[in-house]
């Protein structure tokens, strides 16, 4: 027995208690639902359907499209939020005059309520000629674009809004990480004649590798389940073409009263997350040396 057992238990317990009771058990319960059919009326008992809901889910073209959409959405977010967050952090450095103000400004979108952001961007992306972006474009003689109306561009627009809102998070993480990079190493490298670019590539980036991995994981897991922004901007439309699994889950359960199917989709999202977390923990773990 570890001599720290008492400490371990008492330190771990509060967090675990809250989490297990209020998050984990409910999700397991709702996963249980996935094997049943239920119209969402409390007097009606659950009807066991085995894997029926899962079959329905995997054979539904709408679901498969939602997978494609979310994959693209996550990809765009990971790439751009990380690039912007870390790129700008490196650019700003900690000695550039006014960097604090820049940092504050770039973080601003992060603090806005999701409903607010989605609404704002919905305005900006209005497809009619007097919409904000289209008015700007008309100044340059470009035709109005359909933005959220066009299945091709819609996902990109939603991603753009999400990137705008989120990159500030990663900017902060990047800053926190960069400042932990040993100044001695940097000075030594400078003395040795490294220029700025080499410093960044050879020393800073590898040192903050962990932080970048964390950012990427946060991005992936957060956006895989992202609901609000898609829902408010397009509600999965037009004609159900911009659904992601989480909005589909909502619609199936709360709109069509297919609570079993909705729970099946939730189960899928959750399983996917376990997979991603497991894989990324392995990756992170293997990079850990010293």
């Amino acid at each position: 027995m570890n001599k720290n057992t008492g400490l371990i238990i008492s330190f771990l317990f509060p967090a675990l208690a809250f989490y297990v009771l209020m998050a984990l058990i409910p999700i397991v319960y709702s996963l249980y639902f996935a094997f049943f059919d239920w119209p969402g009326i409390h007097t009606v008992p659950l009807k066991f359907v085995g894997f029926g809901n899962f079959v329905k889910m995997f054979t539904s073209p709408r679901f498969l499209l939602s997978l494609k959409n979310v994959a693209w959405f996550v990809f765009l977010n990971v790439v751009f939020q990380t690039l912007l967050g870390y790129g700008i952090a490196l650019l700003l450095g900690t000695y550039l005059r006014g960097f604090k103000q820049f940092k504050l400004l770039f973080f601003l979108p992060v603090v806005l309520p999701m409903t607010a952001t989605s609404l704002l961007w919905k305005f900006i992306f209005l497809p009619n000629p007097t919409g904000v972006l289209n008015s700007l474009l008309s100044l340059f003689g470009v035709d109005a674009v359909a933005w959220l109306l066009d299945a091709q561009t819609a996902m990109n627009c939603i991603a753009a809004a999400n990137i705008w809102q989120g990159f500030g998070y990663h900017l902060i993480i990047a800053f926190a990480a960069i400042t932990t990079v040993s100044t001695d190493m940097i000075e030594a490298a400078t003395i040795d004649g490294c220029n700025r670019f080499q410093r960044v590539m050879k020393i800073i980036l590898p040192s903050i590798r962990n932080a970048i991995m964390i950012s990427i994981i946060l991005n992936v897991t957060g956006n895989l389940k992202n609901f609000d922004i898609v829902f408010v901007m397009t509600e999965g439309g037009p004609n159900n073409l911009t659904h992601v699994p989480s909005t589909l889950m909502y619609v199936e359960a709360f709109k069509y009263d297919h609570y079993g199917l909705g729970s099946a989709i939730a189960a899928f999202i959750f399983a996917l997350s376990l997979l991603v977390t497991g894989v990324s923990t392995k990756l992170l773990g293997s990079k850990e040396n010293v």
């Binding site: 984990l24 897991t221 959750f270 997350s273």
Partner: peptide, 30 residues
């Protein structure tokens, strides 16, 4: 404080990042 199963608990915690909030409303309200 590495102890047997610490990795397990860690994964349990972190997996929760994926729980979509909508899906727990029904069981919770129940």
């Amino acid at each position: 404080l590495p102890f047997k199963g610490s990795k397990f608990w860690y994964v349990i915690f972190v997996a929760g990042m994926m729980i979509p909030m909508q899906s727990v409303i029904i069981p919770l309200s129940f």
